[in-house]
Nucleic acid binder design. Sequence first.
DNA 1: ATGAAAGCGCTAACAC
DNA 2: GTGTTAGCGCTTTCAT
Lengths: 330, 330
Amino acid sequence: MADLARLAGVSVATVSRALNGSPEVSLATRQRIGELARSLNYTVNIGAKNLRTKQNRTVAVVIPYDEQSRQHITDPFFLAMLGSLADALTDRGFDLLLSRVDSGYLAAASQLYESGAVIGTVLIGQWRHHAQLNALAQRGAPLVVWGAQLPQQVYCSVGGDNLAGGQLATRHLIERGGRRIVFMGDPSLPEVAQRLAGYHQALAEAGIAPDPALQLNVPFETGQARAALTRLIESGIAFDAIFACSDVLAISSMQLLRLYGRAVPQQVLVVGYDDIEWASHADPPLTTVRQPIAAAGIEIVQALFDGVAGQPTPPRTLPVELVVRQSSLR
Amino acid sequence: MADLARLAGVSVATVSRALNGSPEVSLATRQRIGELARSLNYTVNIGAKNLRTKQNRTVAVVIPYDEQSRQHITDPFFLAMLGSLADALTDRGFDLLLSRVDSGYLAAASQLYESGAVIGTVLIGQWRHHAQLNALAQRGAPLVVWGAQLPQQVYCSVGGDNLAGGQLATRHLIERGGRRIVFMGDPSLPEVAQRLAGYHQALAEAGIAPDPALQLNVPFETGQARAALTRLIESGIAFDAIFACSDVLAISSMQLLRLYGRAVPQQVLVVGYDDIEWASHADPPLTTVRQPIAAAGIEIVQALFDGVAGQPTPPRTLPVELVVRQSSLR
DNA sequence: ATGAAAGCGCTAACAC
DNA sequence: GTGTTAGCGCTTTCAT
């Protein structure tokens, strides 16, 4: 900037003002300096600017990972959320700092904030970390978590309406003739627990007694899910429908069912969750509960900015919607 | 830090040294300061540190988007690459700044560098921007592009061996009895052009004359691809195999073929490209050319760091491999 | 309308 | 082993 000032024959103060479009500096010099900067490929050093102004236009997006599995971000749903956040932030002129932190030590997520690198943090994946997240929020970092709304929650969460989602899916399966409906998902995750509650409510409404044998407690990871479903099939326990807590699980299950000669939807109805792009390309196209991904990105970002501005940030629940395709149409 | 110094009864210089683990400061005070900092949730302001030391531990990953379609990052392959890069950078203690820039104005990608926000840039998706990328590289920013190696290339590219991939896929289809092999992809993209060249070579080896009617020039976007394939089917032109330049295209095509009562693999063999996670869950499981995604992340990051260090960064081509599943096994 | 100068939080000579 | 001080590149009062 000093160079620029010298070349323009003015002081750095003027250059700074000009580059920031201050009306104090005459239009002529403002333009002259602007063009000089452009021709020199000069850009204000963002670090110095941030240091001086104590502001900052970047947001951290944290995806926790299991220390053991050390797995790559892989579920298309997470990735779609990431894209949605990227778009929402880009629209507001903010950058996105992608960070992976050990899920056992989420406190690391706040370092980005405490070191002044970001103005706040978005965490995708609440998992089992409710307490850790509360602790994190209490350290003062603006934080928004994609996940379920829980009792005694200090942090702000934005999430789909999981209870309604579970009900929607299950009611639909019942309407279509399902009576022995398998539930697939890991209820130790808050979001899944709520979907399970919706499943139970819908069963109760229809006067169907839930059979614990049909509740498959499997993580969002196809390997174990396939094993569990295989055991179920081979045990000979009857079922005529599946409500899976993710599309990945649902599609993987449909494939397995085919292997065992069970036709979808003729013999088994299937409903998934998320409505990832693949759901409509599955065979048969998958009925699923659509999560409002684009809206989610916008809401999350809005909530985060509210938090940064010191405004209250109540948890938000976004509506979900049932998308009926052929996997549930007998 | 001044506060910390006061509380510890030392000067800021000592605190700085202690926090950076300098052996000059006595172990006792070093530990004392360390614990004090921890108890205060204090973290060195990274912006100020970067400003002073003129270093920086963040890398920009840019995903261009079309100004028109303004579409979300959506192809699972891109997202998998992103995950791989995130892992590779995390392993080296670097942060990843995710940025979306208008593909018509890629020069914007260098701003992150010129403003000192990042030490270099990784661009996923070479598309048609060879010239722009060259210009970008010439501005001095360390840049690595995932894509094909091209003549007169100034920037460093890391990519799969597209020529071999095209050959592998096509030879396999021929071995399996394919004679009239459809090619799907947009040859205006360098990577696809190389795969097409491989396709042509394999045809020539087998003495099969290429039929231009079988070359479907469609983008990586299923809508147009489906339209083109539909036209081909309805035109009555015979074909017995498809080589699609992405798994998304391939799976979408299989779905369409089923609609038209063409059995895969009995009537039409299909091979895809990328080996995204979904390929093995498709129906039938998709034979495909595997891109080395995990290795790619590591290579890209290595190349970028070489560039930052001022070392030469020749383009790198990574081996691909054919993964045979049922979609091509008649 | 423009300039001089202080200071954002940190590190690294250089002194002691 | 520790303190003093200059300065990274910028913005912003306060003067003029």
